[in-house]
Simulated assay, not measured.
Amino acid sequence: MSSRLVSTAACATLTILAGCSLFGKDKAAQVPQLASADAYYNNGIDALRSRRYTLAAAEFEVLQQNYPYSGYTANAQLMEGYAYYLQSKYAESAQQLDRFIELHPTSGDAPYAFYLLALCYYEQIGDVRRDQQMTSESMSRLQDVIARFPQSKYARDAQLKIDLCRDHLAGKEMLVGRYYQQQRAYEGAIGRYQRVVQDFQTTNHVAEALERLVEVYLSLGLTDEARRTGSVLAYNYPGSKWYRYAYSDLKRYRLLEAGTPKPGTTKGPAGAASQAETLSPAQSAARGIGRADAPPALSSAPVQPVNSEPLTQQSDGSTLTSNVAHQGVGQGTSGRPR
């Protein structure tokens, strides 16, 4: 009986082993074979060139997950960030670019990565009626590009973007100042207008800010301040429509001095002021204006792993433009913008 039990157990064991062997073969046959790192990378490049951005991001992500030590991994991180950027998925793009910068701070593509990261914030700037926190964040990121890579082509364009951000912030101050003025909250209006004059001297809003100050001072009976501000406006913007408005107000209040210059001629119909909504960078980008060029690695996909060697730069990210502009508000009965 003992020998029979041993024989039965042996047969059962052989049966189980055979079954495991067959199951193992079936399972191995079901495991898909991974493509090579260069295949994933070049598939992603092809997807980018054909504007299949979602597929491109997926290809680069699979490469990073399965070949974390490949020579293609660094470029895949940068390319995935660019693919997200082209889809206006700025949070995902920023996360990917931050990862690239953290892991490859000395890469030849680092200037572009910092620049594209700044644009992820820049293109989220809303119009002047919205909160401008993103504008401040964008300025900080753009200044970082200039500080780190002052001689790069990206630094030149970053400076242009900073100027546009400052113009945007000044536009916000003017919007709030005009609201306070309409509500007769003159102290708040003066504070906003003076900030534009003092902190945003290089923007296009200074002439209007000075003219608005003349209006407010006259409303408060502060004739000396009104005359003094009018003189500053006359010296710096003698041919602007804003000086023409201030000159008219000072003349009506009989505050013109003997040497006060008359307003010069201005372009366009007298008293006209365009009424246009300020376009944010994101709105401009949606119309195909101001988008970033491809990173250098897109222009020449490498055949061999690139490691830390920079690729040939064939695109110029400094050619970006912006459609940000501030062109006044509605007009009052006298033809003057209000």
Rank of each mutant, 00 (worst) to 15 (best):
A226Q: 02
L298M: 09
K25L: 09
G332C: 09
K267W: 11
A301I: 02
Y69S: 10
H205L: 06
L17V: 12
R166S: 08
Q314T: 07
G332A: 07
K251D: 13
R195F: 07
L55T: 06
Y217S: 06
S280E: 00
V145A: 14
L256K: 04
Q132I: 11
Y82F: 10
G330C: 12
T278P: 03
Q77C: 09
Y237V: 08
N204Q: 11
I16R: 10
R212Q: 04
D131Y: 10
G171Y: 05
A270K: 13
G271F: 02
Y247H: 12
R178Q: 11
S219D: 13
E208K: 05
Y72H: 00
Y115C: 06
G221I: 08
N66H: 04
L119Q: 04
D249G: 05
S318F: 02
E277H: 07
Y82P: 14
T278D: 14
E215L: 07
R141S: 11
L298E: 12
L311R: 12
Y247G: 05
V176I: 08
A91G: 15
G288W: 09
G290V: 07
Y69V: 06
H205D: 06
T135N: 07
Q95M: 06
S136Q: 14
A76P: 04
Q159R: 14
P150Q: 15
R52G: 04
A234C: 02
I45K: 04
T278V: 08
A83S: 00
L279E: 07
V306M: 06
N307G: 15
S300D: 13
N43K: 11
Q96N: 13
T15G: 14
Q96W: 11
K27N: 15
R178F: 09
V216T: 03
M79V: 14
R130C: 00
D163C: 02
A301M: 03
A94E: 04
T266G: 02
A282H: 00
M139R: 13
H168K: 12
G188I: 05
N43A: 10
Q65H: 06
R130N: 01
A285Q: 02
Y245L: 02
M174S: 05
V329M: 14
K251C: 08
A35C: 02
E215D: 01
S70M: 03
G108M: 03
V303R: 07
I289V: 09
L14A: 15
R156Y: 02
L103K: 13
P310K: 00
R99T: 15
F100T: 12
R227M: 11
L160A: 08
V206R: 14
V329C: 14
T266I: 11
Q194T: 08
Y217L: 10
R336G: 04
V62E: 08
P105C: 10
S315W: 01
A294K: 15
R166A: 13
T135A: 13
V306T: 06
V306H: 10
N323F: 07
E309I: 15
V197E: 09
V62C: 01
T278Y: 05
L117C: 01
Q87E: 05
L160S: 14
C165R: 03
